[in-house]
Amino acid sequence: MDQNLERFIAIRRDLHQIPEKGFEEYKTQKYLLDYLDELPTERLEIKVWKTGIFVKVKGMNPNKTYGYRADMDGLPMEELTGLAFLSQHKGMMHACGHDFHMAIGLGVLTALVSNPIQDDVVFLFQPAEEGPGGAKPMLESQIFAEWRPDEIVALHIAPEYPVGTIAAKPGLLFANTSELFIDLKGKGGHAAYPHHANDMVVAASQLVSQFQTVISRNVDPLDSAVITIGKITGGFVQNVIAEEARLEGTIRTLSEESMVRVKQRIEAIVKGIEVGFDCSAVIDYGSMYHQVYNDETLTKEFMNFAKDHVEVIECKEAMTGEDFGYIVKEVPGFMFWLGVNSAYGLHHQKLNPDEEAIAVAISLLTSYFSFKSRAN
């Protein structure tokens, strides 16, 4: 595994340098395809889908098909790690570990090509997990229909856990999520004559304050939900009353029912702002991700299996969003956290996962697919 570890660490570092936006992963796709072209072809089938890739590793006598999903895109943020293999794309960074996910996928794929199991394994290299969402359209593609796995697994790096540890839980793992964009339009004017204008900075501020009551007074206290407004823009100079303002945020809930209820309350509050400030408002929910609900039987089986290979922790559900939820809504499967021991967390400009975790994941997943195929 030492030589393989160096190989896939090198792959991870190459991928780390070329992070790209969702559905713009052209260099990433080419890098993956170039690597796949170097492998023996007798057990491989490769199909390109948009900027993603489907790869089938054919088993010796298949009765079932297993799947592994690896997301491909980066995040629009400047990297501050100081690493020798720093992102070459200004304003883009692999700050969510997708470079790890892909390198691990290639490692497992390579192992199964070299030492084939009885069953087929399909690898989904999926674009646009960070937005606008690649899992749902990939799921709806003709290729997925032809190669539909019977079971599927994905992992996500976890900076808070040490290398050699995984964390998972049966049932709900990740929340339902929705983006939130609200555009307000009123009437601008001179700062000295506020009575002749409808100030959208004040309207936006009122919205932020009122949204706090949605969570505290409209969501079951035994449930969990979050509304976060992360960005407000409005106006263009200090002595002019702003005619327009824009709020950008996110909604996260642990139940589908709460997501519906939260949106209903947001819409009611926004209508009140329109009346109260004599303005117009447009709401856009952007990308919406379904909760990741791990198949309970498969997750328990995997956690029991993994105990012989790594330390296993049963974790709590998180407010994290992941479009893998659309896939496990249709196909039995699960996601687990892979410990990578980073001082900085996901989506941080200094995220620096421990690369030793790559070998841990490749070994664990290769053994798991072999185990599943023997048990089948």
Rank of each mutant, 00 (worst) to 15 (best):
L247Q: 03
V360G: 04
T297G: 05
L5T: 13
F85A: 09
K47P: 02
A242Y: 01
V113Q: 05
H190F: 09
Q291P: 00
L75S: 01
P159V: 10
T253Q: 00
D37C: 10
R252S: 05
G131N: 10
R217A: 08
L364Q: 08
I215H: 09
Y35T: 11
M335W: 04
V226R: 12
I362E: 10
A357K: 08
A359I: 03
Q206C: 06
A225N: 11
R12I: 08
K27E: 15
R252H: 04
A128H: 08
I283H: 08
N115I: 00
F236T: 09
L207R: 00
K300Q: 15
A175C: 15
D71E: 14
E330T: 14
H101K: 02
F277Y: 15
A357P: 03
D37W: 03
K300V: 14
Y26D: 06
A158M: 14
K185C: 09
F334G: 12
Q349P: 04
N376K: 03
I117R: 04
M77D: 02
E330I: 06
V262D: 10
K64A: 10
A281M: 03
K263Y: 05
L39F: 12
G339P: 08
F54I: 07
A10V: 02
D354K: 11
N218H: 14
V57Q: 07
A361V: 07
Y293K: 15
V260L: 11
K300L: 15
T297M: 12
H16W: 12
L139F: 12
S363G: 06
C96T: 06
I251P: 00
N218Y: 07
R265L: 00
Y289T: 05
K47R: 14
L254D: 09
A111C: 06
Q88F: 02
A318Y: 08
H196G: 07
S224N: 14
N63A: 09
I283C: 05
Y368N: 07
K263T: 11
R374H: 11
L83H: 01
G74Y: 02
V214H: 01
E301R: 15
E356Y: 02
F211Y: 07
R12G: 07
T213D: 06
Q118M: 03
A103P: 04
A268W: 05
K307I: 04
Q118A: 13
G171R: 12
D73C: 11
L365R: 03
P132S: 08
Y68P: 02
L172I: 14
F211E: 00
G234R: 06
K350M: 13
E151R: 15
Y344R: 03
T299E: 07
V328A: 02
I104G: 00
L5W: 09
M288G: 03
E301V: 07
L338T: 02
G321S: 10
